Amino acid sequence: MPLFPLGAVLFPGGHLPLQIFEERYLDMVGRCLRKGLPFGVVSLTEGGDVRKRGDAGHAPEIFKSIGTMARITAWQSPHPGLIRIDCVGEQRFQVLGQRKLKHGLWLGDVERLAADQVVAVPDDLVHVAQQLESLIQRMQAEASSPQPLRATTPFAFDDCGWVANRWCELLPLPHAMKQNLLALDSPLVRLELIADFLERG
């Protein structure tokens, strides 16, 4: 699977807009569009979203092994050498091995991780789901268009994983914390940690 290391964390069901202009990613996006395939978003721990040259060539890129598949849902090319794409997060995966092609694109041998089980929000966390619902309603009312939220529908305010993932996207959480939350297999634990953060805030 082609990998896209980013200084961001993509969650299943999340929306990711990207501007593509590097040769390696223009090639990747073209292949994904032609074959209807996803690419993998992995979180950078070293390096930047845009490849830069250092004294000894390109600066290193180091990224986490747990990521999320991204499927392109819309694209446009305003001029040659630039593609704007909208993506939706799908299944989580783990990188088992990786290699870099000559033009800089990473390829990974990946193992798909099980999707979150649908777990009902327990009574003691219902207020967290209600807060999210109120926030989304307010955002939609204030925005000229609900465009930024389109990838999160259909809403599932009774599902621990869905509620936790949306909070992870909306809250100003430290990057490392978002990655740790993504790596959790239990959607209930993920939501409990979000509740703790909200209470402290």
Rank of each mutant, 00 (worst) to 15 (best):
R51L: 15
V118D: 09
G47W: 07
Q94H: 01
R99K: 10
A56G: 11
L37C: 13
H58G: 02
L125S: 09
K102P: 03
R34S: 15
I72H: 01
E111D: 09
T68C: 15
E111Y: 03
V88L: 11
V88R: 10
L113N: 13
P122M: 09
I85R: 04
A70R: 01
T73M: 05
R51K: 08
A56L: 08
D49K: 00
Q117V: 12
I72M: 07
Q94V: 09
Q76H: 05
I62S: 09
V29D: 08
S65Q: 03
H103Q: 15
E46I: 12
V126F: 02
I72S: 02
A56E: 12
L113K: 00
A115V: 06
G104K: 07
K35G: 02
D86R: 14
D86I: 06
W75H: 15
Q91T: 07
R53M: 11
R84I: 15
V110F: 01
L107T: 08
W75I: 09
A59L: 14
D124C: 00
H58I: 04
S65G: 06
I72L: 12
Q98I: 10
E111A: 14
G47Q: 00
D123C: 02
P78A: 02
R92Q: 10
V110Q: 03
A114R: 14
F93I: 04
V110L: 12
L105G: 11
V50I: 12
I85S: 01
A115K: 11
P60A: 07
G48D: 15
G48I: 07
S43T: 14
P60R: 02
P122I: 11
R99W: 12
E61K: 11
G89Y: 03
L37A: 13
L107M: 08
G97V: 03
A114N: 14
L105S: 00
V29K: 04
V95A: 15
V42I: 14
D123P: 11
V42A: 04
G97C: 10
D49Y: 02
L33T: 06
R31F: 02
V50K: 03
V118P: 07
Q98D: 09
R99I: 00
G54L: 05
R71N: 14
L105T: 09
V126E: 13
P80D: 03
I83F: 09
D116T: 09
F63N: 08
K64A: 12
S65W: 01
Q91D: 13
V50A: 04
G30H: 05
P122K: 08
A74D: 13
V41S: 10
Q117L: 09
P60C: 09
S43I: 02
T68S: 04
I62D: 05
W106N: 03
V126H: 04
Q98K: 06
R99Y: 14
D116A: 14
G89T: 02
I83A: 06
E46C: 04
L37N: 10
I62R: 14
R31T: 15
V119D: 06
A74T: 06
P60I: 05
R34Y: 03
R34H: 13
W75S: 13
T68I: 05
H79E: 06
G48M: 12
A115L: 10
V126I: 11
H58N: 10
H127F: 08
D124P: 02
L125E: 08
L33I: 05
A114M: 11
V119A: 03
G30Y: 04
S77K: 02
G47E: 01
I66T: 13
R71P: 07
A70D: 00
R92A: 07
E90S: 12
L33K: 06
V126C: 04
H58R: 11
E46R: 14
V95R: 01
R84V: 07
